[in-house]
Amino acid sequence: MPPAPSASPSVLDLAPVIPVVVLEDATDAVPLARALVGGGLPAIEVTLRTEAAPEAIRAIADAVPEAVVGAGTVLDAESVRTAVAAGARFLVSPGWTDTLLEAMRASGVPFLPGVSTTSEVVALLERGVTQMKFFPAEAAGGTAYLKSLASPLPRARFCPTGGVTAANAAGYLELPNVACVGGTWMLPQDALAAKDWDRVQALAAEASGAAAAR
């Protein structure tokens, strides 16, 4: 029997840039999401690194319908269930195992399992998954590594995350096997601490505009 197709047919097509958000205070979730959407970045990955994350995902899902909120740092079946129950519309993991892959597939929402080696990419292709997160992108070889995968593994498409910045994002997006990038450069810590949502929106607009002009 051939492998089942990937359950993530559209994550990579949501937006060219996906902000990766770490929230300590769930009350910041809605104004932050509105700022990102206002700047042209509707796909938002809220990482499950803090206790506030599920509540933040739920708040964005309920109050910002124009946003497509997902969950990152999904590590096991429990975090899959937590994310989906909170309203996550896509899932992103830093790596994968067969158990985690099965849980993400069973969730019914699109997902991006993380890879950093050629063997991991081939293993996912064997399992019918063609859309992946490349993490940690810069540490794992950056654009040169991804470019080298394009010819031998043409079915694989990637969202590089980890070390992607305003300065190098365009280089990733120019690659034929890269559909989008994930990053935090539009979310500087001082702006978040000051709740300067206007600045976040302006940075999001810069990121969106730069990606559209590539």
Rank of each mutant, 00 (worst) to 15 (best):
Leu101Ala: 14
Asp28Thr: 09
Ala83Lys: 03
Met104Ser: 06
Thr130Leu: 07
Thr118Glu: 14
Gly87His: 08
Ile60Gln: 03
Leu91Phe: 09
Leu32Lys: 05
Ile57Trp: 06
Thr117Ser: 14
Ala56Glu: 00
Gly114Val: 11
Pro110Val: 06
Phe90Met: 06
Thr118Gly: 12
Thr130Pro: 04
Leu36Trp: 05
Glu78Asp: 15
Gly87Lys: 04
Glu51Leu: 13
Val109Asn: 08
Asp62Val: 05
Glu120Thr: 05
Glu66Tyr: 07
Pro65His: 09
Ala71Cys: 11
Val121Ser: 12
Glu66Lys: 14
Arg127Tyr: 06
Phe111Lys: 00
Arg34Leu: 07
Phe134Arg: 10
Pro110Ala: 09
Thr97Leu: 07
Ala59Val: 09
Ser79Lys: 11
Ala26Ser: 09
Pro54Asn: 13
Lys133Glu: 06
Arg89Pro: 08
Arg58Cys: 08
Glu120Met: 12
Leu125Arg: 12
Ala85Ser: 13
Ala56His: 00
Ser119Asn: 14
Ala86Met: 03
Leu41Thr: 11
Pro54Leu: 03
Leu75Gln: 11
Arg58Ser: 15
Glu126Gln: 15
Arg89Gly: 00
Gly70His: 10
Val84Cys: 04
Glu102Pro: 00
Ala86Ile: 05
Thr27Arg: 14
Arg105Tyr: 01
Val109Ser: 03
Val68Thr: 15
Gly72Thr: 12
Thr99Met: 02
Glu78Gln: 14
Ala71Asp: 12
Val74Thr: 06
Ser116Thr: 14
Glu78Ser: 14
Thr99Gln: 15
Leu101Thr: 13
Leu101Asp: 07
Ala106Phe: 01
Ala106Gln: 04
Gly38His: 04
Ala53Met: 02
Ala88Ser: 13
Val92Gly: 09
Leu125Asp: 09
Thr50Lys: 04
Gln131Tyr: 00
Phe134Pro: 05
Ala63Glu: 15
Ala83Phe: 01
Ile57Phe: 10
Val74Pro: 02
Val122Asn: 01
Leu124Ala: 06
Gly87Met: 03
Val121Tyr: 08
Val92Phe: 08
Val122Glu: 11
Ala61Lys: 14
Ala71Arg: 08
Asp76Thr: 13
Ser119Tyr: 05
Ala29Asp: 04
Ala123Val: 01
Arg34Ile: 02
Ser119Thr: 15
Pro42Glu: 06
Arg127Asp: 08
Glu45Ala: 03
Val64Gly: 00
Glu45Pro: 10
